[in-house]
């Protein structure tokens, strides 16, 4: 482990002290617009998110199910129609607008604390195309805390890991039900922040049952590392969040939230429903302990 603690590690450590799991909602950047993304990040923080995942829309999202495929496609189509194609600087600027405004909401308590950290979920080609060193530098400057790259296993991530050394930026690796013990150890070795556990062999999406396979996987990973683990893929209801919270350090919710935004095309009502689902999931995790690192009630 590195000498200094990353922002993600701090958040998970604080939550562990409170015996509470992190709620990690996801939004696809650029849906329905990049301006809306900044607002949705603020909304998610206000509704009780502990960490927020922002998806970089990609033309060929091979790890994503139908809902997030639609979100990626819609974001790219809208961006093209407005003549402002989505690129890395644009997405980072939208995130930065949210991060930079942090701190003032809690200033009344005298001790400003930053907003829930943001991690970028992106396929590798946009990162590679932007340039790996330049990506890390720009991401750090934008206040991004880490990146989850589903098609970049540790074997191919050497350059990225090297570029993030000594920064507050964490590469987040994934583990799946098919991961061998050796791979679990390799990922634990490279991770600073948290490990992302894929709950089932499959793509992202809404599933009726989540848990048994995830539970086995969490136990296997816990045997190898102390690092916090967040579980994603398929979690869509407050009950499922509560169930995952009993076994893991965090629950990632993507398709259920994007499905709400997509069906309302990002309308005011759909944003309210998006916030309500996050709040209900947050409530399912138990009361906020005093001094919790939440963004406060805005």
């Amino acid at each position: 482990m590195t000498a200094h603690e990353t922002r993600l590690a701090t958040v998970f450590r604080a939550l562990r002290r409170q015996h509470r799991a992190a709620l990690v909602p996801y939004v696809t950047a650029g849906y329905p617009s990049l301006e809306a993304t900044t607002h949705l990040l603020e909304t998610a923080a206000g509704a009780g998110a502990d960490v927020i995942e922002v998806g970089y829309p990609f033309s060929d999202p091979m790890a994503d199910g139908p809902v997030l495929q639609r979100a990626h496609h819609a974001a790219l189509t809208r961006a093209r129609e407005t003549g402002h194609p989505i690129d890395m600087p644009g997405v980072l600027a939208a995130i930065h607008a949210y991060v930079a405004a942090g701190g003032d909401e809690s200033s009344s308590t005298g001790a400003p604390h930053p907003r829930p950290p943001v991690v970028l979920m992106t396929y590798y080609n946009p990162v590679f195309r932007h340039g790996i060193d330049r990506f890390v530098a720009d991401a750090v400057a934008a206040g991004l805390s880490g990146a989850i790259i589903p098609d970049l296993p540790p074997e191919e991530a050497r350059a990225l890991v090297d570029a993030t050394r000594g920064t507050d930026f964490s590469p987040v690796f994934l583990l799946a039900p098919t991961s061998t013990v050796q791979r679990i150890r390799e990922v634990a070795e490279l991770t600073r922040g948290f490990i992302y556990l894929v709950s089932v062999a499959g793509v992202t999406g809404i599933r009726e049952a989540v848990g048994d396979q995830a539970e086995v996987l969490v136990r296997r990973v816990r045997r190898e590392t102390e690092l916090p683990v967040a579980v994603g893929f398929g979690i869509s209801t407050p009950e499922q969040v509560a169930r995952i919270a009993r076994i893991a350090d965090g629950a990632v919710v993507g398709s259920a939230l994007m499905s709400i935004l997509l069906s309302g095309e990002g309308s005011v009502e759909s944003v309210a429903a998006f916030a309500a689902l996050i709040a209900a999931m947050r409530a399912a995790l138990g009361p906020t302990a005093s001094g919790a690192a939440s963004a406060g009630e805005s």
Partner: peptide, 21 residues
């Protein structure tokens, strides 16, 4: 061994597929 043809090739896939590959 890792499937690299110079800088090309490799395995850029979701973790779930690493074991079957």
């Amino acid at each position: 061994e890792q499937g690299h043809f110079g800088p090309y090739g490799g395995r850029f896939v979701p973790e779930t597929l690493m074991a079957p590959l």
